[in-house]
């Protein structure tokens, strides 16, 4: 009961990219507990693919089945219940700047808690140990009560990871989850995602810019280029020539060490959104 994509395609219907094709005939079947990495050059459609799995955009072609359900045939209530079982780690963590880390983590369970428990947690957190333990897994327990605008980019990204770990989803999607972290922390974060996936049988899909992390950690690596799947292989069979073909237009293979945090073209909008979120000044008239 992982997910199934059957010849999924997407042509943007509106916005700046109107009429552009983002995905073409993508078919992936993943079982419960499988761990997949998606790699590919910027603009290949990695984020689009993840957002289709997150049920946040509806593909224009093909069939989607997530956790045994067809999201676009569900009613509003059922869709919400399905979504509460899907966790999405955003590259630019969508967290209000003034929110405290503990509140940002607690927000992961809003879809599962009764509304009064969520509402009261704004005044006094209904669970302190849980968020603390999740942050501790990422070496961030000491920032539990800090405001998120006082955290560095890498720390904020770890809060975003902790939120999704705290959500305890059955399908864990991660869009460049470690792009702002140094290599050691990136390894720690990815290892925690893996232990979560293995211990609870969670299906894990991560898009990664750093090829070395993908090959080191994931039993299944999918190469995506110009909206199409180029290969779907175990890491041992992902040879240098396969990678060179995938990144044909790029000069060097990207890795976590060589690639500091640079939002790519496909993430430019999200990054801009995050920047806006962090500079909303109190305006006085």
């Amino acid at each position: 009961m992982g997910f199934e994509l059957d010849r999924v395609g997407l042509v943007h219907a509106n916005g700046q990219a109107q009429g552009q094709r983002a995905l073409r005939a993508v078919s992936i079947v993943a079982a419960r507990g499988e761990r997949l990495a998606i790699i590919g050059p910027s603009g290949a459609g990695k984020t689009t693919l993840l957002r289709i799995l997150a049920t946040s955009i509806r593909p224009t072609e093909g069939r989607v089945s997530v956790l045994g359900a067809h999201p676009w045939q569900l009613g509003a209530g059922e869709l919400r219940r399905l979504r509460s079982r899907i966790g999405f780690i955003h590259q630019a963590p969508p967290i209000p700047p003034r929110q405290r880390a503990i509140t940002a983590v607690i927000a992961g369970r809003l879809g599962q808690w009764p509304w009064w428990k969520s509402a009261l947690s704004l005044l006094y957190p209904a669970d302190i140990a849980g968020p603390r333990d999740q942050l501790a897994r990422l070496d961030l327990a000491d920032r539990l009560f800090d405001r998120c605008d006082r955290l560095s980019g890498g720390q904020l990204q770890r809060v975003g990871v902790a939120r999704v770990l705290y959500q305890r989803p059955d399908l864990l999607l991660a869009d460049e989850p470690v792009s702002a972290m140094d290599p050691a922390l990136a390894d720690l974060a990815v290892s925690q995602l893996h232990s979560e996936a293995q211990s609870r049988g969670v299906t894990l899909v991560a898009s990664l810019h750093a090829v070395d992390i993908a090959l080191r950690w994931f039993p299944r690596v999918i190469g995506l280029k110009a909206g199409e799947i180029v290969f779907d292989l175990p890491p041992a069979q992902v040879s240098d020539s396969v990678l060179r073909d995938l990144y044909a237009s790029e000069t060097a293979l990207p890795s976590q060490d060589s690639e500091p945090f640079h939002p790519h073209v496909e993430h430019a909008q999200e990054a801009a959104g995050a920047a806006r979120a962090s500079v909303a000044p109190p305006r006085v008239i």
């Binding site: 919400r80 992961g108 704004l122 999200e270 909303a280």
Partner: peptide, 28 residues
Amino acid sequence: NAPPEPARALAESGAAPALAFVYGTLPV
């Protein structure tokens, strides 16, 4: 003018609209 991303992210993890608003938009 508030950025829509925080509330949208919460709604997409199953939060009810009102809760997504108080956790995602109100603090901004």
